[in-house]
Design a protein around this nucleic acid. Structure first.
Lengths: 199, 199
DNA sequence: TGACAAATAGAACGATCGTTCGTAAATTGC
DNA sequence: GCAATTTACGAACGATCGTTCTATTTGTCA
């Protein structure tokens, strides 16, 4: 690959780190240039506009997410084992991929949920793919007999996403040490249809 | 009340509306001044700094949330009825309080979860109160025998918060018409410890 | 009504924003 | 190793950012 592609991917690495810390609103040309050692105009030339940079960063985050969460889970057998693997990787995906300050996609989801434009459209498309992949994993678990036959995979995916969001909230904002335990307990309960969680 | 207090509360109304649309990062002195018809310096004098404005807006949002979600739920009998009332009001609280573009507190939670400072501390304090109120409602349901005696109210509160977050995501970003149905189904399942959700 | 205080406006500041343009340096292909 | 092309820089732009001043208007209360 040419040198351009190389620096471009380095820029996106730095962009993801920055979006992880301060969200996509903090992803300015100036600070990102300073952080990468490039000049503003030099960095700018790689994308043509800040909007294009944001879109590229969203794509990069989505790819990294898929590689960190979904791809490794394919090694687990289809059905509940794979569903559990996805969930476990998900809980730790930001740390595993060097974005220890939070999920950029999650930040983008809140920042752009009411801002029409190509960035939002891109983000929605990515989240729909994510949702579809998650639903498929649950559907395979239903097919395998690991979950009741009349289950709705979409409802499982909805609930699982909520547990992850609650985990982000408890871990990142509230700094609760038991955030992961709470999340796992909630997920176990979701899968088992178990009685009320024990104290 | 003096005229100062009056304009201050009008400013905060506009601030909440703006934070609902574009988050707290979009809450700039200039646009807020234009939106309220005040001059930048005239508006600024009411708070002394942008940070103080953000804190005041968070407090205003938290009070409005409590008035819209928790206070009306007190009319429902303690136990499951009250828990359900809280949840139902929560799903519609932004529309009921004129913040149809999203929950400002939710936006703030993501924007400030990694930005140390007084704004973050204020926000955390507010969310801990919220969590405590929610836990208390679940604890009352346990006491009333509506939930298993060995239940952990904190775990219920964690799961309920996750369902609300998933609802926000599905409704606001993905614009799914069935978001509320999904949320209610998940909540019913949480309360019932029911078997897998039907298709 | 007149004196005092509170509230608002207006202009200006340094900094940073995204973006454009012309030019220099570095890389590539022959 | 030369030529062509890609890549990066530096300076400047108008706009907006939060903030600070000084006036001026407005409201309050004896």
């Amino acid at each position: 690959m040419g040198k351009g592609e190389d620096t471009r991917s380095k820029i996106l690495d730095a962009a993801l780190a920055q979006a992880s810390e301060g969200g996509f609103e903090s992803l300015t040309i100036g600070t990102l240039a300073a952080h990468t050692g490039l000049s503003k105009s030099g960095l700018f030339a790689h994308f043509g506009s800040r909007e294009e940079l944001q879109i590229a960063a969203i794509d990069a985050a989505a790819e990294r997410f898929a590689d960190t969460v979904f791809v490794p889970a394919l090694k687990a057998g289809r059905g509940l084992p794979r569903v559990r693997a996805i969930f476990e990787h998900w809980l730790r995906w930001t740390e595993d991929s060097g974005l220890a300050h939070g999920c950029p996609l999650h930040a983008a989801a809140i920042e752009f949920d009411d801002r029409p434009g190509p960035v939002r459209e891109h983000l929605v498309a990515r989240y729909e793919i994510l949702q579809r992949n998650l639903e498929r994993a649950f559907a395979l678990a239903v097919d395998a007999g690991d979950l009741p036959a009349d289950s709705d995979p979409g409802q499982y995916a909805f609930a699982a996403l909520g547990i992850v969001f609650a985990y982000y909230h408890a871990a990142r904002l509230l700094r609760r040490p038991d955030a992961a335990d709470r999340a796992r307990a909630a997920f176990d309960r979701l899968l088992a249809g178990a009685p009320a969680p024990a104290a």
